[in-house]
Design a protein around this nucleic acid. Sequence first.
RNA 1: CGGGGUGUAGCUCAGCUUGGUAGAGCGCUUCGUUCGGGACGAAGAGGCCGUAGGUUCAAAUCCUAUCACCCCGACCA
Length: 637
Amino acid sequence: MPTYWSKTLIPTLREAPADATVPSHRLMLRAGMIRQLGAGHYSYLPLGLRALQKVMAVVRREMDAAGAVEVFMPTLQPIELWEQTGRRADYGDNLFVLTDRHGREVALGPTHEEVTTDLVKNFVDSYKQLPLTVYQIQTKFRDEYRPRFGVLRSREFQMKDAYSFDIDVEGLDKSYQAMYDAYCRIFESCGVPYEIVEAESGPIGGSASHEFMVPSPTGEDTILKSDKGNYAANVEKCETGDRPTHPAFAPFSRAPKGSAPASHGGAKARSDEASASMDPTGDLEKVHTPHCATIEDVCDFFKKKVGSKLKPQSMLKSMLYVATRDSDASDPTEAKDPWYVLAIVRGDHEVNLAKLRDQMDKAFGEDAQLQPAPEQLARDDKWALGFIGPHAAPTRDDTYLLVDPDAAQGGFWVAGANEADHHVKHFNWQRDVLDSISDDAKQRLIVADIRNAVAGDPSPKGDGGVLEETKGIEVGHVFKLGCKYTDALDLKVLDDSNERRSVIMGCYGIGTNRILAGAIERPEGNDDNGIIWPAAIAPYQVIITPIKFADQVKDAACDLARDLEAQGIDVLIDDREERPGVKFKDADLIGIPVRVVVGDKGLKDGNVEIKPRSASDAEMVSVDQAATRIAELLKTL
RNA sequence: CGGGGUGUAGCUCAGCUUGGUAGAGCGCUUCGUUCGGGACGAAGAGGCCGUAGGUUCAAAUCCUAUCACCCCGACCA
């Protein structure tokens, strides 16, 4: 049965609400697909729901084809599960927690690793029952800092999540690959362009991870790609190739992992000419910089008060972290033996905590708990927060000094003075640190990649490639989890030699409503007149626009609709008593791939007018041929 | 959470500085004329001006508090 516009609910809007800023949000609102209830909560109206259901159908088809089995798990999850895996703390405020009438805490599921593991534990005892991959499509809840961009980042959203269970790493690799391939087919089927990038696994945990991104300037994720085309990664994960340090730092340097040693490919030394020399030609000089605790503040201050131009890349940024081996103490202030890590990067760079953790793990050969130093703790320990400089570290035996290669350069730097409201200029590593450093402190000095990669950095492939930056919308994410959850929740099975072994997991997520937004955000997904859907996920494949819904036009429109429906093509008939112009505008706005105009004019010659939404011109086709022609056309859209 | 902004009709917004009985366009209802790219005319319906206090003879307007939403930022799928 075709849908009649007048009988359904498609409240199109001439203007978008002022608070909608990104194209997908504006157009979904204007097309009458969604309505906002609160910050990050959206209702799906019939048009939006239909599109979402199309996506779900594609996802189900490919999941089933890949051998995954569909289940449906509860949204309400006992908080104990989250405590057992330690993720209650990891998720922090992002986890919605509610209290039931008995005073028990329950989490609103943001994801289902714990529940799935717990479920599978109940009935999987033998390696013979593996591999197993389960999936579900469900509403997830995350208490985002800041929901935004409509359906792109909401607190309540739909996700297809899948979990694989294998007896060994080879099995995991296979399961992972099967999902990876299925994801490629899903995004291809849905007609959304995508890129696959290496990703940080974040609070989910795990060893390997890829993200599926729809390239788009409105994306919140930053992707770095080698111009050689052989490497792409999320900025949170992205490695850099070898970046040369000043020779004086050689004994402390750690080559970035995976990079070819001593490649001088795209590495750029500081542009500042003075950096060529390690010899100080100016004395270390303290400058009074009241209330200038950030790089930006200091630069402004120098410009306005000192009268000299200071660029962020001429400064050293000193970030203080606190570490502990005591994994039970979630609060470092209560840990038994905390120590500090002072991370130094160039003023225009950002410290990457995951990389910093990696380096600390290497230094200790075990997991260290590392986090930004809480303000109170740092002040109590006499750190001049906001005004810390690198030379503070060697004087303290509780502090490691980690320096990024780009900061480990000669010449002069502006840095914190280790005294409130003061910075120093003419800071020089050789004179102010290396010359006076004790042997003991040398053990705690490491030069290594600890910052986020930026455009212009050398590719980690070490082939002379240079990284370029783009933005993307994350629509899918696959992880090799390992045994994090199965160990925490004790999911073990007997293997073929009767040994109990930890089951190895993978997990795989797709944001189904992000696919919708991604389809609209893609360059071909919208124009001045509205949405342009890929046929696979369009709410309807065909819209029939009768010029006036009466008499022979009405009959012809209904006949055609019936023929199309008989071929499995879904049809929307715009039967409203509106002027043709209004119907054309609305048809364009909601973006149905094929529009058929039925009017007296064409009918006089036995024709209807067929126009793909993406085309600028229509073609006249005889009434008899219309259904066939439309079916053909749809295959190309 | 820090900074900024906005709450007036279903939507987009004016009115607020300088207090004095609530406005426009679009949409909606009825009638008429229109009818192939958001028609025209006429007549209507629709708002305790986010909420609560306060100042005042009088508050959409001034003050205080509070709530909601949006934007920017802070290691977010």
